[in-house]
Each structure stands twice: as structure tokens, then as C-alpha cells.
Write a protein that binds this DNA or RNA. Structure first.
Lengths: 231, 231
DNA sequence: TTCATAGTTCGATGATAGCCGAAGCATCGA
DNA sequence: TCGATGCTTCGGCTATCATCGAACTATGAA
């Protein structure tokens, strides 16, 4: 029949409203879980699962398994470009939509991911640790350096050697929900969060079920001194 | 639930195989009649009429009445750009039909993409510019180096500083339809193409609506001297 | 171990939309 | 005026596919 790559299959994937909602939700660059994408699209998890499988088969998104979660991200910047181009055309044609409420900013700033710190500050902490050469990271594997051990002992009174666990690594990179980068998990990540709580630098929000972590004023200051964004 | 323009309606238009065939047939830049498009898509005129009405309502194509014929063309170069982007994604995902890109070899060799050079030679030019360190490219962003500015001034009498534009970047990577790689777009891409025309190195094909670019013998030689494939 | 949560698979249902035959306009040439 | 051609509208048929309930797997928590 015709020559050339089969555009229509790809376009049809974007053409379904539910799938399109998922893709636009991913345009921020963040990786989202299957359930989050289901809610974003306003459909049940079963339906979402089917859609995600199709999008993956079409090469538009890529999965990353993380525990029992499955994070999805756009597989390539070109995909976002095409979506933007479509937005431009749609905008010109006057097909607009209604607006939605943004996510909880506090949740994005600092929250608990299982038992360790996540969000803006979590990502910032791991970034800073890399910059200060407290850890070496290659892909998912993170290792505490000698300097890192000293730092933990002196600044946070954490004995890294005591954190070994039969079934859990000391350091682990965990994909962040709001940022799309990694923060520190593992027994060290948990120990650091525990220490923050003990020192009253931070506390989990009182609201039952909330994952928000509130930093005290001095806590935020001390945190910045150890893991400041710049320098 | 989402903000922004409604992509999915537009994408759904492209998502139908029959409509998609029509759109790709229009990508050459020529305007085609309704019956020609029907034949191109392999459907009856009635069905084609319905599709064309939808594409027009979606702002993808524009009609031009001429006697009892109704010519359709892509309403905007942006539409062709999005289609090319989709081709790239589809090609990467391995959803090929028979072969890539346009059938016409001349169209594959050198053609106009909006206002800049595309096809074999377009891709070759950007490759060569990267090799000669005339530009720096990181993903989609391209930047002209100091050496690149000198090169443009000396070899092509183009003042790169005069090319800044409020709504258009000087350099931009544009995914090529036939080659699946990038060629140079932006005001610089347009200026270079203009210069080629002025120097009579190349000229757009005389056939109305054709996107083919014909290089003269000396033009091809000069082009090779500046942007040769090897070296 | 047992329970809870995240995600998937399966099957049935229902709505959407592509398709074509037939008929209806519109334009051209004679 | 007539007939021919290009294109559109209408109506009914059909196939596709998104959707969800229910049941199943896998991972983590107690």
C-alpha cells in the first residue's frame, strides 16, 4: 500500500482521551505510577493497565519497576516534542479544555517514601552527597565512600557499618515521585530520616495517612548547612 | 481534568488510517483534489468527503475551490512538522510499512522542509557542521559556536547575529522525514537555504507545490567542499 | 504465616465511528 | 437547456475498542 512508517498507529494511541491524559501528565518529565496515571485519566486501574501496555508497545513510554510500583515515563524527548506540536495545532483550532487543581506543594517539597525522605529535599540531599563525594553512584547502585562514613558519624552520629541488613542494601537509589530523579533509600536513608526526627529537625505530618514531612525552622537550616543546594 | 489544548481530538484525526494516508499524500506540499485523496486512501468518495470535512474542522487541512474541484492542502507547515515527528517515532518503534520516507528519490535527496533544507543533504550538512564544531548540539538545542559564526560570515556571507528573532530560534534540530535523523532548521537554516538559492547553487523545483530542491552541478560541488560527507 | 496494596488478565457490554449505496447539489461544456 | 462530472448528505450496517467487574499474581508489611 503506502510507503513510510505507520503514523496512524502511533497517532491513534495519542488519539484516545484517556491515553492522551496520561501522556500529557508525563510531559512534565516526571515518572508516574500506573495508579497515578489511572487517576489522572479518570479511569479504573484495569483500563489504565491496558492503555499503558499499548503505549509501551507503541514505544511512547517506558516502564521502570520499583518494588511493587511501576513507574512510567516518556520514552524519548521527541515524544514530548510531538505532543507539544499537537498542542500547538489544537490550540490554533480552538480546542481547549478545562483546568485542574495542582498537586499538594507540601507533598512535593518533603515527604516519606516508605521510611526515608523523598521530594525536593530528598533529591537535593542525594545530589549534595554526590557533589561532596560522600557517595559513589553508578545507575541504581550507590556506595558510601570513606569520607561519607566519616561525615555520617561526625555530623549525624550514624554508624554506617551497623546498618548492614541481610535483606536490604545500605544505600539504594529510589526513583522520586515528584521530581523525576533519585533520592536515597536503603537502611542509610531510613537511618538518616530517623535521625532527623530524633533531632526534631523534621516530623511526619499529624494528619493520619499523610506522607507530608514538615521541617522545623532550625531543622531546615541545619539540613541546608549539610546538604545545601549550591556550593 | 487536564489543562491545555485538547490534543486527543487532533491526534485521533491522524489516527485513522484513511485520513492518515490522505495527510501523508499532502506532505509533498502539493494540493490534491478530494477524489485524488480518496484514491490515495483507498476509499470511496463518500467516505473521503466525510473524512475531509473532519480534517478541515480540525484545522489540519484547508480547501481551495476551483471550478467543480476542491483542492486540499495542509493548512500549516506546523502540521507537516508534527507528521514528520510522528514518522520519526513510528520508525523508531519499528512500525514500518514498506520503506521509509517519500518514494521520490529526488525528494529524499534534497527538499524544502518549511523554509530550510531537508533530505539527505540536509542531514549531511548538520552532521558536517557538528564534525567541524561549527555547532554544539545537546538533544534538541543547537548553538552556533564562535567558529561557526566565522564560518558563516566568511564562506556564506551570513551574519549570524542578525538572525535573532523574537519567536523563532536561530538554530533548531528538525527530525528528518526520510532519514530519521536531524537536519538544521531555525532562522539560520532558512538563511543558509536562501543563500544557496541566491548563489544559484540550488533552486526549488519549478513544478508548482513541489518540495524538491535541485542542486546545480557547481552547487553540489561547492556544497560538498563546505559540508562534505567524509573528512 | 496472613493481610493489604499495586498491577494485570479475562470476559462481557455498549457506544463510537468508519464504511458504502443511493440520492441530492453544484459546476462545467455544449 | 441538457447531460456529465465532482463532491456532499443521508441512512443503515458492521467492526472496533474503550470500559468495568471479577478474579489472579506479585510485592511489601505485620
Amino acid at each position: 500500500m503506502k510507503a513510510g512508517p505507520d503514523i496512524s498507529r502511533i497517532a491513534a494511541l495519542v488519539g484516545d482521551p484517556a491515553r492522551c491524559n496520561m501522556l500529557t501528565a508525563l510531559m512534565t518529565g516526571r515518572a508516574l505510577t500506573a495508579s497515578e496515571l489511572a487517576q489522572e485519566a479518570g479511569i479504573t486501574p484495569q483500563t489504565a493497565s491496558s492503555h499503558l501496555a499499548k503505549l509501551e508497545a507503541g514505544g511512547l513510554i517506558e516502564p521502570e519497576k520499583q518494588g511493587r510500583h511501576r513507574y512510567y515515563r516518556l520514552s524519548d524527548p521527541d515524544v514530548a516534542d510531538v505532543l507539544e506540536g499537537l498542542q500547538g495545532i489544537a490550540a490554533r483550532a480552538g480546542h481547549m479544555r478545562v483546568r485542574t487543581g495542582p498537586k499538594d506543594p507540601a507533598l512535593r517539597h518533603a515527604r516519606i517514601c516508605y521510611d526515608h525522605l523523598a521530594g525536593d529535599l530528598g533529591v537535593q540531599m542525594l545530589d549534595s552527597m554526590r557533589r561532596q563525594k560522600l557517595v559513589r553512584q553508578s545507575k541504581q547502585a550507590i556506595e558510601l565512600t570513606g569520607e561519607g562514613k566519616r561525615f555520617m558519624a561526625e555530623e549525624l552520629q550514624i554508624d554506617a557499618d551497623a546498618l548492614t541488613h541481610p535483606r536490604r542494601p545500605v544505600c539504594k537509589a529510589c526513583l522520586d515521585w515528584s521530581e523525576r530523579r533519585h533520592h536515597l533509600a536503603g537502611t542509610l536513608g531510613a537511618a538518616v530520616m530517623d535521625r532527623f526526627t530524633e533531632l526534631k529537625w523534621a516530623a511526619r505530618d499529624a494528619t493520619p495517612g499523610s506522607r507530608v514531612v514538615n521541617f522545623s525552622r532550625t531543622g531546615e537550616k541545619r539540613f541546608a548547612a549539610l546538604f545545601g543546594a549550591d556550593e
